[in-house]
Structures are given as structure tokens and as C-alpha cells.
């Protein structure tokens, strides 16, 4: 492996943090989902790196499933959000505060 595993992990970690940052700062439901996507991708990178590190295929399998999960997430999430937008006209998460 050319790139040490530690570096891969660091990259994954930074990407993960970026995803978290996006999730908690962007005042837009879609951007939150995108942030989560980024987090998932960070995990996927870590898996790929680990799979290479251990020379095992299970990590790769994980990545495939993560991609599937991400796809589901986007489809379900977008469906929800678009429907919500149609009703309330807003992507702003702070406008959803019915409950207290």
C-alpha cells in the first residue's frame, strides 16, 4: 500500500468532520442530507482503506452496501423533504417546530 493506512483514516476522519459541519451548520434540509452523504462517504473511504490494509474483501462489500444505503437515504429523504416543501414552502429546518 502506497498510502499508509493512518493517512487514509485521517482523510476519512476529516471528511467525516466536514460532513458533520455541513450537517449542523447549513440551514437547509437538503444540505443536511448532503452532509450525511459526505459522512457516509468518509466511512466508505475508511472501509476501502481498511480493506486494503487487511487485504480482505469484506471492507469492499461494506462499501457497496453503504452506497446502497446512501441511495435509499437520498430517495427517502428527498421524497420527504420535497413533500414537506410543498406543504410549507420552506427548506429551513427551523421552520419545523410544531412540537413542544
Amino acid at each position: 500500500m502506497i498510502v499508509p493506512f493512518g493517512h487514509v483514516l485521517m482523510l476519512a476522519g476529516m471528511l467525516f468532520l466536514l460532513g458533520v459541519f455541513c450537517t449542523v451548520t447549513r440551514r437547509n434540509l437538503i444540505m443536511i442530507i448532503l452532509g450525511v452523504e459526505v459522512m457516509l462517504n468518509a466511512a466508505a473511504i475508511a472501509f476501502v482503506g481498511a480493506a486494503l490494509h487487511w487485504q480482505s474483501l469484506e471492507g469492499q462489500a461494506f462499501v457497496l452496501f453503504i452506497m446502497a444505503i446512501a441511495a435509499t437515504e437520498v430517495s427517502v429523504g428527498l421524497a420527504l423533504i420535497v413533500y414537506a416543501y410543498r406543504r410549507s414552502g420552506s427548506f429551513d429546518p427551523s421552520s419545523y417546530n410544531l412540537f413542544r
Partner: peptide, 10 residues
């Protein structure tokens, strides 16, 4: 508990 969801995530 009733704040905006993002704060809570944070």
C-alpha cells in the same frame, strides 16, 4: 429538547 433539530444534532 424543543429546539431546532440541527442544534440537537450538534
Amino acid at each position: 429538547q424543543s429546539g431546532m433539530i440541527q442544534y440537537r444534532l450538534l
